[in-house]
Nucleic acid binder design. Sequence first.
DNA 1: GGATTTCTCTGACCTGAGTCAACTATCGTG
DNA 2: CACGATAGTTGACTCAGGTCAGAGAAATCC
Lengths: 306, 306
Amino acid sequence: MGRVDEIERIRAFNRFYTQHLGLLTDRYLDQDRPLGPARLLYEIGDRADLRDLRARLGLDAGYLSRLLRTLEDHNLVRVGPHPADGRARVAALTETGRRERADLDERSRRAVTDALGNLTAEQRAELVAAQATVHRLLRLAGTVIAPVDPAATQARTSLLRYAVELAERFPEGYDPATLTAPGDVDGTMLLATENDHTIGCGLWTRLAPGTAELRHLWVAAEARGLGLGRRLLAALEADAAAHGITAVRLGTHAALTEAIALYRGAGYLPIDDYSDSPYNQLAFEKVLITPGWRGGSAGRSGSRGT
Amino acid sequence: MGRVDEIERIRAFNRFYTQHLGLLTDRYLDQDRPLGPARLLYEIGDRADLRDLRARLGLDAGYLSRLLRTLEDHNLVRVGPHPADGRARVAALTETGRRERADLDERSRRAVTDALGNLTAEQRAELVAAQATVHRLLRLAGTVIAPVDPAATQARTSLLRYAVELAERFPEGYDPATLTAPGDVDGTMLLATENDHTIGCGLWTRLAPGTAELRHLWVAAEARGLGLGRRLLAALEADAAAHGITAVRLGTHAALTEAIALYRGAGYLPIDDYSDSPYNQLAFEKVLITPGWRGGSAGRSGSRGT
DNA sequence: GGATTTCTCTGACCTGAGTCAACTATCGTG
DNA sequence: CACGATAGTTGACTCAGGTCAGAGAAATCC
C-alpha cells in the first residue's frame, strides 16, 4: 500500500471515529449537565487541589472557579481550605456528587455496551485487540527519543523516578546516591518523551577508549509494552557507535527480569562482573557493529529515502 | 477476558482516541477559521445546493445562511441562484475557496503524517490494518437487521436502489417492474440499517407450503466487506424457518458473482431453474434445519444467556 | 518585617455555535 | 389563479466555554 493511500485511510478512520465518539457522548453523556462540569466531576476524583485540577485540565483559574461554583450550587462538590496551605483550596465530592459521578460512569459504560450491539464474544475480542494495536502504535509514534543534558531538570527527575522504582523492587532497597552524577557522564543521556511527558531514559558513558557502560535504562510503568525499552537500547547503541564505541557493557540486578530478557534478546552476552556497584549482580556485553560497515545498525541513521 | 473488562478497555481506548483526535485538529486545522466554516468549505465540494448542505450537515437554515455569508465575505464562496428552481440557491467555491480547501486538506494530511512520526513501514501497515478492523467491527455493531413492512417507503426505496444497481450490472439492463410488489410478499422483508441509514435488504416469500423463495438480497455499495450479506442471509433463513419453511430456493444472475459465492458458502446447492424470471440464470436451494431440532440455527434466536 | 510571589475569586468581556420566529420569494397543485 | 408548501434571509436571542485584569489573602524570600 502506498504511503499516500495509508494516510488517506487513516484520515478516513479518524473521520469515522470522530463521528462514532460524537454519537456515544451525544446520546448518553451530556444528559442535562454541560460537558465542562461533567468532565470536572470525573477529574476531581474524590478530592483534589484546585491547582492540580487546573494543571491537569489546562483550565483558566477564573473558569475553574466558576465551574466549581456551579457544581457547588448543585450540591455536588464542596470546596474547602487546604489543610497545609492557607492560600490553596481543595474540592471534594459530596455524597450526591459521588452518586452523580457513578451515574455518569454507568451511562458512559452503557453507551459503549450499546454501541457494541450484537457483536459476538469473538468479535468483541477482535475489536479490543485491534484497538490495543492502534493504541500501542500511536503511542509509539508519538514518542520521541532525544539526547538531553544530564544536568537538566527533566533528566534528573527521570533518574529519580527510576531510583524510586528500584528502591521498591530491590529487596535491599536502592540508594539514590548511586545514580550517575551529571558531571560523570562521558557520553550521552537519552530521554524518551510522549507529548512532553517523560516516559523513559538511559545513558552511556565511556569506561575506556572504545568501551562504554550503559546505565539507568528505564521505561516508566505507564509506557511498558510499547517496545520502548528496545528502542531506547537501540538508540543508545547507535549513538555510542557513532561516537566510536565498539563494545558496550552493563551491569544489572537479578530482580530486573524484563531488563535481563531485553538485553539477551538484543544480543548481549553474559560476562564476569566488572564493576563494584553493589546492585550489579549480573553483567553483559555486546560488541557493536561499527558505523563504517555497510548495512550496520548505526549506518541506518544516516541513510534516508531508501 | 471478561465482558466488563472489555468495556473498560474500550472506554480507555475511546478516551485515548478522543485526546489523539483533539491534538490532531487543535494543532493543525483551525488555524484562523473557526470549525463551522471550515467544515462547510469541505462539504460544499465544488458546488452544492443549500438544501443538500442543510440536510447533510443537519444545520439550521438561518445558521447555514449566516455561515455562507461569512465565507462569501472572505471571498471563498459565491452563492448564486439555482438554475432550475427559483426559490433554491447554489453555493460554489471560488478559486480562492478551492485553494483554501486544498490547504486545509493538506494541513490535515500533514497532521496525520506527523502523528505517524517515525513508525516503520511495517508498523504503519499494522496500524492501518488494525484501524480497518476496528472500523469494520464497529460498523457491524451499529447495524440493525429488522423486519419491515414491504410497503413502507424505506423498503420501496431500498428495492429501487437495488434495481438501479442491477440495471447497471446486467448487460441486458433491469426492469424495475420485475421487483416484487408489496402485496406479493407472503413472508418477511428484512431491512439492514446503520444509524437510520438503509444499507441492505432482502425478503423471502412462500412458493408452496414449506418452500420459500429468497429475493432481492442486496447490500449497499458503502456497506460491503462487513459480512452483512451473510448476516442478512442467515437472518432471512432463521425467520423463514421460524415460519415453518424447510426449503429455500432462489434464482440469481451470472453477473452477480459475489452473491453466488455467498450462496455457495452458505450451503446452497445448484438446482434446475424453476422460475420464469428472465434474470434468473442460475438457481439454488438449501434445506433448512427446522426449529424443532436441538442446536439448529433457528433455535438460537430463542435461547438467551447461554 | 517588608517585598514579592502564589493561589484563588470576581467582574467584565468575548467568541463560536446554534435556535427561533417572522418575513419574502418562488413553486406545484387543484 | 389562489393557496399551501418549500427555500432562503434576517433579527433577536441563548448557551457553553472561555479569556483577562484586578483584588485580596496567605506564603515565601531576603
